[in-house]
């Protein structure tokens, strides 16, 4: 074997490892997505969408809350423009999240950044934001590809299951798994807070804002406004702090 071959197999190995570790990091998202996607599939089928339409929504829209809202609005006969604007408002928070993560992943070529950005959800963003060292590693893009695709595929497969099989999950189990994504968010936040309590302060400020705004604003706007306000305050909270 000549040197070039050794090098090539070395690179191939690393890509494979990154991809595998990414898939493993996507596992908690999968656990959270599966029951929600099944519920979505069931409700969407009940509200009169065909299997093709409800699966298409999971493939092309890929945003849990917006899909629930969209199927509901279609069912009650809301206007097309209304549904589209409501979707935009609800999903606009991903712009802020995407900007944060894309800034991290700046060094990735655009042909990687582009697909990764399209698969950005609350959950994939959150996991990616605490696993940032891969943005500086060789073949790190494969890590995020693995994670984001695991989440994406489990969302699509869950929707199809729900659409075809109907309510296969017992109520008690799907209700218990309703905490799964919140537990995941908490598990992502706590270790950072243990290292820097100031991150916990920023999260706490966002919680208070979001609680207050939830009385006056739609969920989507409330999350956007609270995230923006808390992160702007956060600039001053982390002043003088060193971080990686």
């Amino acid at each position: 074997m000549n040197t070039l071959e050794v090098e090539e197999s070395g690179i191939a190995q690393t890509k494979k490892i990154q991809l595998k570790q990414g898939i493993m990091s996507g596992f908690p998202i999968m656990l959270g997505y599966f029951p929600i996607a099944i519920t979505y599939g069931v409700l969407a089928a009940q509200s009169g969408l065909t299997l093709l339409e409800l699966t298409g929504m999971s493939i092309f829209v890929y945003a849990g809350a917006a899909q629930f809202m969209g199927t509901n609005m279609l069912e009650i006969g809301a206007g097309a423009m209304e549904i589209i604007i409501a979707t935009f408002v609800l999903n606009f928070r991903h712009f802020v999240m995407s900007l944060s993560f894309m800034n991290r992943a700046r060094s990735f070529p655009l042909r990687w950044k582009f697909p990764i950005s399209l698969l950005l959800t609350d959950e994939s963003f959150s996991v990616a934001s605490v696993k940032t060292e891969q943005t500086r590693q060789p073949n790190g893009s494969y890590f995020y590809l693995g994670m984001f695709m695991t989440a994406y595929l489990s969302w699509i497969i869950g929707s199809v299951f729900g659409g075809i099989l109907g309510d296969i999950m017992p109520d008690s189990i799907s209700q218990s798994l309703g905490i799964a994504l919140y537990a995941m968010f908490i598990a992502l936040l706590v270790p950072s807070v243990k290292i820097k309590y100031r991150y916990g302060l920023i999260a706490g400020i966002a919680m208070v804002f979001n609680y207050l705004f939830s009385f006056y604003l739609d969920e989507g706007w409330s999350i956007v406004v609270s995230t923006l306000l808390a992160s702007f305050i956060g600039i001053f909270v982390i002043r003088g702090m060193t971080y990686a």
């Binding site: 802020v96 919140y182 936040l189 920023i202 409330s222 609270s226 995230t227 808390a230 992160s231």
Partner: peptide, 19 residues
């Protein structure tokens, strides 16, 4: 700095009061 702290703010807003 602002983009760096967005994940923590977003996590806070995603957790509460939704939980």
């Amino acid at each position: 700095h602002w983009l760096h702290v967005i994940p923590y703010a977003a996590l806070g807003a995603l957790i509460f009061p939704g939980v």
